[in-house]
Amino acid sequence: MSTIKEHLVSYQSTNSYSTLHKLSATTENVWIVFHGIGYLSRYFIRLFNHLDSDKNYIIAPQAPSKYYKGEDYRKVGSSWLTKENTAIDKQNVLAYVDAIIEHENIPEDKNLIVLGYSQGVSIASRWVTSRKTKCDSLLFVSGGFPKELGKEDVAFLENQTRIIHILGEKDPYFNIEKIDQEKDRLIQLMPTIEFRTHDGGHELNPESLQDIL
């Protein structure tokens, strides 16, 4: 009878990420933006092109797992995590984000804005809470907050971080009951959280970010 075993190995890995505009003396805000499933960072980051290039510097990490989209195998998408080996993959992704932050060496006098869109919400929130990242704003766009995170994980954000949840009114992935349940849970965890909507669907609407700064 054959015996199947799974084993773990560690190795060094290399991954890309994208930036928009320049980090300079005039930069006021540094954005770290996590894309949703199916995106590549170089395309997702274009959604922030409307931000003032003198005042805003945008960093878009790239999800490591890539795959072909559609039946013609021409377009490439990516994914952060799946239900397979989630705990291990999560630690790999968080270590990758840490490497980006170390490489960028962001000055402490800049406003730090962390944004997660769709699947990227899970990475943005896990990175911020696990590293106790002191950010000025934390934005959740069209995505769910990880179930394993509790009030003790987000308590350090209170009174120092503006937390905003943004959802499209026509988002097909959320119904009213789910939205209300999620709001109730988030209010229990983060009482100061703000809820916003836009008239679109499951998308990052640039206009909904206009008054964040």
Rank of each mutant, 00 (worst) to 15 (best):
A95K: 08
E194I: 13
G120I: 05
S41G: 01
H35L: 03
D171V: 05
V30G: 04
T86W: 09
T192M: 08
T197S: 14
G168E: 11
I176L: 12
N85M: 07
D72G: 03
N205I: 01
N85G: 06
D136V: 05
G168N: 15
S142V: 07
S53A: 02
G143N: 11
Y173S: 10
K75N: 13
R46H: 03
K151R: 10
G143T: 09
G36F: 10
D109N: 12
Y68M: 03
S53Y: 00
L94E: 05
G200Q: 01
A95S: 13
N159E: 09
R196H: 07
Y67N: 02
A63S: 09
H202I: 04
N159V: 05
K22V: 06
L94C: 07
D184L: 14
G201R: 06
H50F: 01
V141A: 10
S18V: 01
A60H: 00
E108K: 15
Y173H: 07
N159T: 13
E177K: 15
T14I: 07
I88H: 10
V128N: 09
N56V: 00
D89L: 03
A99R: 02
D211E: 10
D199Q: 06
Y67A: 03
E207R: 12
P172H: 09
V154T: 10
F156E: 08
Q12H: 14
Y96M: 08
G201W: 02
E194C: 04
Y43T: 01
R46L: 02
K22D: 08
V121Q: 04
S130D: 14
S16I: 05
R162W: 12
V93C: 09
T129D: 12
H7D: 10
K110D: 07
N92T: 00
V76P: 04
N159H: 06
S208Y: 07
L209S: 13
E169W: 11
Q91E: 11
S208R: 10
D153K: 08
Y57G: 00
I179S: 00
I176D: 11
K151D: 09
T192F: 03
E169H: 14
I179H: 06
Q188D: 11
E169A: 10
L189C: 01
A87Q: 11
D136F: 07
L186R: 08
D136S: 14
D211P: 03
K90S: 09
S65P: 00
Y117G: 00
V121K: 06
S18K: 01
S118E: 10
L20C: 00
R42Q: 04
D184T: 15
L51A: 03
A87S: 13
D184A: 15
E104I: 07
K66P: 01
Q119F: 11
V128E: 11
Y43F: 03
L149G: 03
N29K: 08
S18Q: 06
I179A: 05
I45Y: 00
N85K: 13
I166C: 04
G38S: 11
S130F: 14
I45V: 04
I58V: 10
S122C: 09
F156H: 12
V93G: 09
A63K: 04
H198N: 13
K132F: 08
F145L: 08
Q62H: 12
